[in-house]
Each structure stands twice: as structure tokens, then as C-alpha cells.
């Protein structure tokens, strides 16, 4: 009789324990071992991944198109040569070796003595012209510019904007190691609205005005608005040659 009572009690208690266990397991948050630091971090991560995915997808599409082109030209020397030349043109264009034109903006920076004089900042541009122009160029590249030239010098991946000065003498701005003189004219082909927006947002004109530098930004929305010349300087492979047999 005692054993029977024990069994029934134990059965009832087991049922309750089973229920409690299930509730506990169901209530435990899933994936708690890898906590997400914050929603913002996750969102940023997703956006970065999507951007990377988009770039890689574009790259795959380009490579496939090239593969199709090469396959189609297989066995025919003239077609293959044409395909290779086309490929070279594409590479040249991507590398900035060919002139391009299209909608864009022109920024002209020049000294204007009629602008208000501020003791602290007047004349400062001559000392930081490379930084200021470098900043503008970076902002444009980050906001829709596809090709930029400063005073006719096309900016490519190996380009440099440097302020070179002799001891005590005047400084000279060099782009691609070529000296340039004011007025500095920046031609940029790309998304006009985005480029104008970033320049407005960063108060470029007002900032340069404090240094008595007049900054004129002119949008060219028509198809032949701005022409940016191709890069004509030395290429990275001019001096450095691949070592054969290594």
C-alpha cells in the first residue's frame, strides 16, 4: 500500500518536474552563447556585408562577360586580338589612363583680397593647400566622383598631392610630382548632386573664405559638361621590372 502511494506521488511529481523542465528550456533565449553587442553594430555589419556582396557580384558579372568574350573569340586570331584590345581599353579606363567626360563639377580656388581678413587664418591656405585640396578630393571620391583632375593632372591610385617648399622660400603645390600654380581648378566627373551636397555639408566655401581663398563651384549637368584628361605620368612598372626565373 505504501509502495503504491509512493509510485503515484512520484508519478505526479514527475509530471510537474517534466512540465517545469519544458517551460525552463522553452524560456531560455536561443543563441545566448553568442550575444549581439547592439542592434546598431549588427545593422552596420549587415550593410557592410551587403555592400561587399554587391561589389563581388559586379566583379563576377564582369569576369563572366570577359570569359564569354574570350570563349567566343577562341580559335580566331583577329577576334581574340580584338577582345584583348577591348580588355586593355577597359583596364586603361579603370586605371585612369584615358580621358573621360560627362556630368560633373568644377571647383576653382584662387586668392581673393576682397574677402574678409582674419588675422589667424589669412594666408594659411598657402601652408596647407595640399591638405585642403586632398580633403576636398577625398570627399568627392567618397561621394560619387569617378574621375578627378587638378589643373589637368589626373588623379589615379598612385597620385600624390604635395606641398613642396625650399628653405624660407615660397611653397609650390605638386600633383603627380608636377608643379601647379593658382588658380587651382579641380574637375570632377560623377554624381553632381552628391558632390555638391558633400561640399555644402562640409562648408568648403566658407572654410576657404576664412583664408581669403575664393572657392567657386560650378555644376555641369549636361553630358559633355566636364572633361578629365587621362593620366600621362610614369606608371608603377616604369622602373621596377619583374625578376625572371625567381
Amino acid at each position: 500500500m505504501q509502495k503504491r502511494g509512493f509510485l503515484w506521488s512520484l508519478t505526479g511529481i514527475s509530471t510537474v518536474v517534466g512540465f517545469m523542465l519544458t517551460v525552463q528550456i522553452s524560456s531560455r533565449p536561443q543563441g545566448a552563447s553568442a550575444p549581439i553587442s547592439s542592434y546598431v553594430d549588427l545593422r552596420t555589419e549587415i550593410q557592410a556585408q551587403m555592400q561587399e556582396n554587391r561589389i563581388l557580384t559586379d566583379e563576377i558579372a564582369k569576369q563572366r562577360a570577359q570569359l564569354v568574350q574570350f570563349e567566343a573569340a577562341q580559335g580566331r586570331q583577329s577576334d581574340l586580338l580584338k577582345a584583348l584590345q577591348q580588355d586593355k581599353q577597359n583596364v586603361d579606363r579603370e586605371a585612369g589612363l584615358t580621358p573621360v567626360s560627362g556630368p560633373g563639377i568644377t571647383i576653382t580656388i584662387q586668392f581673393d583680397p576682397n574677402l574678409p581678413y582674419y588675422d589667424k587664418t589669412a594666408g594659411l591656405f598657402d601652408e596647407i593647400a595640399d591638405q585642403e585640396i586632398g580633403l576636398i578630393v577625398n570627399q568627392l571620391f567618397a561621394n560619387g566622383a569617378t574621375a578627378i583632375a587638378i589643373n589637368g593632372q589626373r588623379l589615379v591610385t598612385t597620385s600624390s598631392i604635395r606641398l613642396v617648399s625650399s628653405l624660407g622660400g615660397p611653397a609650390s603645390l605638386q600633383v603627380n610630382t608636377v608643379p601647379i600654380v593658382p588658380p587651382y581648378v579641380i574637375n570632377a566627373v560623377g554624381d553632381v548632386d552628391r558632390m555638391m551636397a558633400v561640399l555644402t555639408l562640409n562648408n568648403v566655401q566658407a572654410e576657404l573664405a576664412t583664408m581669403q581663398e575664393d572657392c567657386i563651384i560650378t555644376p555641369h549637368r549636361d553630358q559633355k559638361g566636364v572633361t578629365v584628361p587621362g593620366y600621362v605620368g610614369r606608371l608603377p612598372g616604369t622602373w621596377a621590372k619583374e625578376v625572371s626565373g625567381s
Binding site: 509510485l7 503515484w8 512520484l10 508519478t11 505526479g12 511529481i13 514527475s14 509530471t15 510537474v16 518536474v17 517534466g18 512540465f19 517545469m20 523542465l21 519544458t22 517551460v23 525552463q24 522553452s26 524560456s27 531560455r28 533565449p29
Partner: peptide, 24 residues
């Protein structure tokens, strides 16, 4: 002797059937 085991299974079954959760 299997009654407690059956009870445990019954409890687990009820738990899954009613799908009750408690705050973390």
C-alpha cells in the same frame, strides 16, 4: 515502476503542448 517515467513524459508533453514561456 514505469509510471513515474510516463508521468515525466506526460509533463514534458504538456509543457510542449501549452507552450508556456516565462520572462528571462
Amino acid at each position: 515502476i514505469w509510471l513515474p517515467v510516463l508521468g515525466l513524459i506526460l509533463g514534458v508533453g504538456i509543457g510542449f503542448a501549452v507552450n508556456v514561456t516565462i520572462p528571462v
